[in-house]
Design a protein around this nucleic acid. Structure first.
Length: 214
DNA sequence: TAGGCCATCTGGTCCT
DNA sequence: AGGACCAGATGGCCTA
């Protein structure tokens, strides 16, 4: 569970603070320890590889126009204020994204508390979980209600299967093995698993991106 | 110690 | 003009 330890604060109170919020992480970016890139651009406009040929760009002209009549210190302060404000928004945006990922984790088949899925695992698992559920629905007629359901085919069937569908996963995501017990009649084992050919894409909920999505 | 994961900063681009 | 979104860079933490 990702805790949102850094709440959005307006930039005004952060102007003099190197670390704009009280994140428990000990992370300190170099940019917060020295002057920002904006500051460096202001001090040395021709930094290597960047901002070359910008003098005639509308953005640059606009900035220069805005700077007219203002001291370098004021311009610097304005730039820093905007940067801090943008950083706060970006941080908040990423926190919202993480909250959405947490919500997604909660509706996925439960895992042991100490086995939190990584971001990429969560997305891949959700993708395959949705796919498996839709396949289960699609083939939900009595003829196909058996151990040969796609969900059972793509995942290891739970040996202790009951009448109601259930999912379970091992403790380690890295070596995860999620199982699905379809709501199949105990006696309907006649359908062979060969009757359905799963796409290789869906064989493993934690399939690596290199092999599955690229 | 290397590699994976993550949070954060940053500048660019697009949109309203 | 300002905000949202994005991707690259950076450095910390954790684990095998």
């Amino acid at each position: 569970m990702v805790l949102l330890k850094c709440e959005y604060r307006d930039e005004e109170e952060d102007l003099t603070s190197a670390s704009p919020c009280s994140v428990t992480s000990s992370f300190r970016s170099p940019a917060t320890q020295t002057c920002s890139s904006d500051d460096e651009q202001l001090l040395s406009p021709t930094s290597p590889g960047q901002h070359q040929g910008e003098e005639n760009s509308p953005r640059c002209r606009r900035s220069r126009g805005r700077a007219q009549g203002k001291s370098g210190e004021t311009v610097l302060k304005i730039k820093k204020t905007r940067r801090v404000k943008a950083n706060n928004r970006e941080r908040n945006r990423m926190h919202n994204l993480n909250s959405a990922l947490d919500s997604l984790r909660e509706v996925l088949p439960s895992l042991p508390e100490d086995a939190k899925l990584t971001k990429i695992e969560t997305l891949r698992f959700a993708y395959n979980y949705i796919w498996a559920l839709s396949e289960t629905l699609r083939l939900g007629d009595p003829v196909h209600r058996s151990a040969s359901t796609p969900a059972a085919a793509i995942l290891v069937q739970d040996s202790s299967s009951s009448q109601s569908p259930s999912w379970s996963c091992s403790s380690s995501p890295s070596s995860s093995c999620c199982s699905f017990s379809p709501a199949s009649p105990a006696s309907s084992t006649s359908d062979s698993i060969e009757s359905w050919q799963p796409s290789e894409l869906h064989l493993n909920p934690f399939m690596s991106a290199s092999s599955a999505f690229i």
